[in-house]
Computed example of a mutant assay.
Amino acid sequence: MFTYNVPSETDAAGFAMVADRFLLVLAAEVGDRFALELWEILSGGDAALEDVLSALAARGIEHLPDFALVELVDARTSSVSVAVRGTAVAQVHGPETSTLAGPGVGTWVEGAAQHVSSITLTLAGGPTGAQLPLGRGVVRADRLQWGSMPVAAAPPRTSAAPAAEMPAWAAGLDDDPLTTTAMDRDALAEMVAGITDDHTRLGTVRRRGPQQPTRRFVLTLAGGRVLELDLPVVLGRAPQPAAHPGARLAALSSPRREVSGTHLELRLDGDQLLVRDLDSTNGTVVRHADGSAMLLRGGATARLTEGATLDIGDGNVARFHAAQ
């Protein structure tokens, strides 16, 4: 059973969401409209963890809210993936309790666990009121819990909730109590995502042969710095010439180290820009000319058209366009 804590001031509370495969607590600053967009993604049936993370990052890394997100990966082994940012905290419970938090991190931290017996997601400030049960849906709250609870805090249950109202993964876990916990906190091996209309995966972009551009295209960075694209361009905090022979290197200022040493490679192909992540730590938020956004990470590649922008981190935003 899921429970949430009733906040003393509902308008100031965050959002707690329970879908068939996801749990999410989210800071109130995102507002009702964005919370509804996230709920539609969570409840859509075909979303993965990276899709939700891309949606959270779509407004830019600097606008990421505090959140704690859990995806059920395998109901048979009670395996979950977890992502946490800011002051939010995720606790995965069993014979031992493991905590994941992300203060001081530019994007978020990730982890994974198997054979979980309960989960607690909390925003800064913690619980402020009595606990109430929750089936599937969205409430204003700063704390969401699944699994065993202290008896004194448990609300009375007059009848079982109809099966259709309970998330499928919660029912499966309740049927099979677990006695062991195994944790694996290594970051997910690959991060590819795209909240686009056709859900195109970044790693499967088809390459076309080199084409001659009809116009001269450049990349303009914040502050007016212009990079020519006649050569491949490598962006990063401190790219090394020996590692990228024949490329034009562009060092970016990153006081908070949100930009990796070698972060991104850019290569012109006709009137389009091929962008490849160089296994950066935080990835790059790519915003297409039509306004759709994706998080480029894990060595993934994207093909961009004129007008697209790249949010690389620490205020480094670049725009792909034709030269005047």
Rank of each mutant, 00 (worst) to 15 (best):
V105N: 07
G94K: 05
A168W: 09
I195F: 05
P65Y: 06
L64M: 06
G299C: 01
A153P: 02
P213S: 07
V233L: 15
T97R: 11
G147D: 11
V218M: 11
A293N: 09
V192Q: 10
M17C: 03
L231T: 05
A318K: 03
T204M: 08
A164Y: 09
F320T: 10
L249D: 13
R143T: 15
A88P: 00
D174Q: 12
D230I: 00
G14E: 10
R208A: 10
G236T: 02
E62Q: 11
E9A: 08
R208F: 06
R85S: 10
R237L: 13
A243Y: 05
S260Q: 05
H263G: 06
V151R: 11
Q240W: 05
R215V: 09
T179R: 12
A182Y: 14
V70P: 00
P239T: 06
E265H: 08
D184R: 07
A164T: 14
A242S: 12
R157M: 09
P241C: 00
T262F: 05
I119R: 01
P95S: 06
T281D: 00
S78D: 10
H63T: 08
R76H: 11
M166Y: 03
L252A: 11
T181S: 15
H93R: 13
T87M: 03
P7S: 09
E165W: 14
V18P: 00
T301C: 02
G126E: 05
R215I: 02
L295N: 09
